[in-house]
Amino acid sequence: MKVLGTVLGAVALILLVPSARGSEASRTCIFQTLSEPDHKFCRGELEVIYPEVGDVSCSYVPKCHGYRRKLSEEWDAPRVRFPWAKKNKKYVLVMVDPDSPNRTNPKHRFWRHWLVTDILGSDLRVGKIKGKVLTDYSQPKPPRYSGYHRYQFRLYRQPEHKTIALSPEDKKSLGTWDLKDFVEDFDLGHPVASTQFLTKNHKD
């Protein structure tokens, strides 16, 4: 009976440990999947890959191992991979925070964190974001006590022979960006893939 109890205890322990993401240390963290309706935003198998944690698509970034702090202060732009991209087509990648300054009062939505156009599908397939950078990558830095923020990645097929640019007004400010108008102005249509992760201030 002691042997059986030991075996069952070991099995239970294994079941409690989440599947590995990134480094060995990350195995002690719980990577919680988003619940509805946030989960519905994730479609098309778009991957967002940061150092140590791996793909954070459709999940909460855990606080353990300083991951939230590193996300806000250390890590540069993630690898974004879309395995179904058409090799010879171009794409537009948008990263925004729709919850600025907080989710209950998002008066500064959409806060633009990254905007890249002219990304070749062949690069997207392997997670390389090469193209024309209209907005440099800005690390997610939710204000203290503002709760969880969604950081959304939207991937659009870029119409052929279409040059995409920001207006002078949009260049001056990252916040209160009219994403809907931007999409309509350049005939981007619906995203071919989208995903998001949630995080909050690492001191909260």
Rank of each mutant, 00 (worst) to 15 (best):
L46S: 07
G9Y: 07
W84A: 12
G121T: 08
D76A: 15
L4E: 09
W75R: 09
L174M: 03
T135D: 04
A77W: 02
P98Q: 09
E45W: 05
T33E: 09
Q32K: 11
E47G: 07
E184N: 12
W111L: 11
F153M: 03
E74S: 15
V3H: 15
E45N: 12
R154N: 08
T33V: 11
S173V: 05
G66Q: 12
H202K: 07
F186C: 08
S72C: 10
D178K: 15
L4H: 12
K203A: 00
L120C: 00
S167R: 09
S146Y: 03
G44A: 03
L188K: 05
D187M: 05
H39E: 13
L179I: 10
E52V: 08
P159M: 02
E73T: 13
T176N: 11
G175Y: 04
R150I: 01
L46T: 09
V17S: 15
Q196L: 14
T28Q: 08
T163Y: 08
D38Q: 13
E74I: 13
K141V: 04
S57P: 03
P168Y: 14
E169F: 14
A77L: 02
H161E: 03
F182N: 00
Y67M: 14
Y67D: 10
E36V: 12
R157W: 00
K63Y: 10
L16P: 06
A77K: 13
T199A: 14
Q196D: 01
P98W: 06
Y67E: 10
V116F: 01
R150D: 02
R27N: 08
G175E: 12
K172W: 02
E169L: 12
S72P: 07
S173N: 13
Y145N: 12
H39T: 13
P78F: 04
S35Q: 13
R68G: 05
S194Q: 15
H202C: 11
E160M: 08
H65T: 13
L71M: 12
L34H: 04
